[in-house]
Design a protein around this nucleic acid. Structure first.
Lengths: 353, 353
DNA sequence: TTGAAAGCGCTAACAT
DNA sequence: ATGTTAGCGCTTTCAA
């Protein structure tokens, strides 16, 4: 492992002082150093393959240019991955790197992990969760600019946590749009499969469904509003129950709790000989990568703004770090709802006549 | 943002020198400092909430305790995520953190990204790819202990790259095991859907299939060996073609190129009224999270050792960093094939009689 | 225009 | 058993 070139060596080789090197490489040399001296220094640095030691720079400048990202599950899932990707892109744009760590699903690890990140001198912190839910904000998050993505503070979080910017999906609108899509296609007999009970999104989506039906003057048949969960198998069972019976007495469309549940619905339909979308329209939720667009028929669904949550959370942190570069809105709203666009694919069509 | 406590402040408060603090906190104090002094220092450090600045430590010790992980695609997918998770777990175990970055799919970014990581003083480097394939190893990877996961060096890589430890799935064995599973169940009419042509895994799996059939004295029907790709839709079409015709003239089992293709097979079978696994057994490959175990019926598949590749790659790097702690095997083989275990679920059964 | 010097927070060899 | 000192690589006054 070859030793790295230091600024001092560049200075020697170029026959100048190491402050000269520093000045030139930081673009502060104009007016101090002769143009050709600057040029020579740059040339030598290049030739020697000089690269500044970012650790030393960080220490000296008290500025690490690193933002910490914490996830509540093992970093690596598709959901948190997309959020991190969004955050990372924005960070890199601004010359920052991201340092990611996860709590491995153990909430009590949040504080120690955050401290570890802080020990590495991260300048800001982002906490994100795989599914939308409440999170207890730990004290470390109040020590630097921070933001929450896909989650919001619990009531027992430190008081100041309520000031943290929160970026979450606009589930009410997403749920409404999904229902309205079906209604606009002409469906009147629409079933709703609610997701897991421990997710706030499940109820938000159900409420939105009911509201949309009400707005359209359509009745909600309670026997068609059932728990389907967030996984394929239970949804398969729920869909089978709803779909049994003659064609004129079953729903012509089903809104599933999420994409995995929608897969269960499609599989159940196939098993019953019901053709999607000719006889039954199916709408998922999440636009889960490598799932929704992978079904045959491809799944119409509502996309979660995963990347966008990451992007916005990072932007909000960065804005507080460099006020001049990206002036924050006068009074940033504590909670931002990001749109969940409908992604129309093949699994929805007008109802059979 | 509250200022952090430094070791000097702890020293003052405890009425000792800052070297005393350093010694105690690094466990080198025994024999130098009185027990009760040590105790007092620890107590004060705790009370003040002192935490060493890891940046300063890294600079001083020339030891950052950080390993860089590079991925060829946007960090966040399920495949690279699992590899990173494995690597990260091993790193954390050893008191290291990981700094992840990706090339965003642009090979020419590999070098600059690696340099960025090196500028942050990472002590080692791991390169991983989402799918198994060749990669041009960049020079930066030869400057520190490094390893490759799920990929191997191209011929035009620097000569020294051939010495890099490589951790890849044992596709030949995996493919063989999949075929033998079907054969052991009693299947004789087995079709094979090859994956994408640009993946070495596709051909490795096909060769393994042919070998297993040969070993069992079973004929390979060329019209049942077709290109199915790695995505659902083309596989759906290929499976439909293979499955048309009367039950006694079609295969009783299909080996798909990967799990997504297997989903296409299952969907195609459903569409043709062929029941899985009663009339047709289906085997996937990859054990893609949130896909294989999510189908109904759940997919029998061959698991890729994703986490294991990450784990082993990290262990290999760490071993060279701390020779005493984890003595490397005398002469580590340059290329390690990691087993791909069969995961038996519901989509396979004995053939119809 | 340049160079010397201080200091970011830490560790370790050395002197006391 | 304790304190002093030098230095990791860098930036930034300040004096020359």
């Amino acid at each position: 492992m070859g030793r790295r070139i230091t600024a001092l060596e560049v200075a020697k080789e170029a026959g100048v002082s190491r402050s000269a090197v520093s000045l030139v490489l930081n673009g502060r040399a104009d007016g101090f150093l002769a143009k050709d001296t600057q040029e020579r220094i740059r040339e030598v640095a290049d030739r020697l393959g000089y690269r500044p030691n970012l650790l030393a720079q960080s220490l000296r400048n008290q500025r690490s240019k690193v933002i910490g990202i914490m996830s509540d599950r093992a970093v690596g899932g598709a959901f948190d991955g997309a959020i991190i990707a969004g955050a990372d892109a924005v960070a890199r744009e601004a010359g920052f790197m991201t340092l990611a760590a996860d709590t491995g699903g153990e909430p009590e690890k949040a504080e120690p992990v955050a401290r570890l990140l802080l020990d590495r001198a991260v300048e800001g912190l982002i906490y994100l969760t795989v599914g939308l839910h409440e999170t207890r904000v730990v004290d470390s998050f109040l020590r630097v600019p921070a933001a929450l993505a896909n989650c919001y503070p619990t009531a027992d979080s430190p008081a100041a946590a309520s000031l943290l910017p929160v970026f979450i999906p606009d589930e009410p609108t997403g749920g409404r749009v999904a229902a309205e899509h079906l209604i606009a296609l002409g469906h009147r007999r629409i079933a709703f499969l609610r997701g897991d009970d421990d997710s706030p999104a499940s109820f938000l989506r159900e409420d939105a469904f009911r509201a949309a039906m009400g707005n359209a003057g359509l009745p909600v048949r309670e026997e068609w509003v059932r728990h389907g969960g967030f996984r394929t198998r239970p949804a398969y069972a729920a869909a089978t129950a709803v779909l049994e019976g003659p064609a004129d007495r079953r729903p012509t469309a089903i809104l599933a709790g999420n994409d995995r549940a929608a897969v269960g619905v499609i599989l159940a339909a196939a098993n019953l000989g019901i053709s999607v979308p000719a006889d039954l329209s199916v709408v998922g939720y999440d636009d889960e990568a490598a799932l929704a667009d992978l079904m045959v028929p491809a799944l119409t669904t509502v996309a979660l703004p995963l990347q966008e949550m990451g992007r916005r959370a990072m932007a909000s942190v960065l804005a507080r770090l460099e006020p001049e570069a990206a002036p924050a809105p006068t009074s940033p709203p504590a909670q931002v709802l990001l749109p969940c666009p409908l992604v129309e694919r093949e699994s929805t069509a007008p109802p059979p006549t």
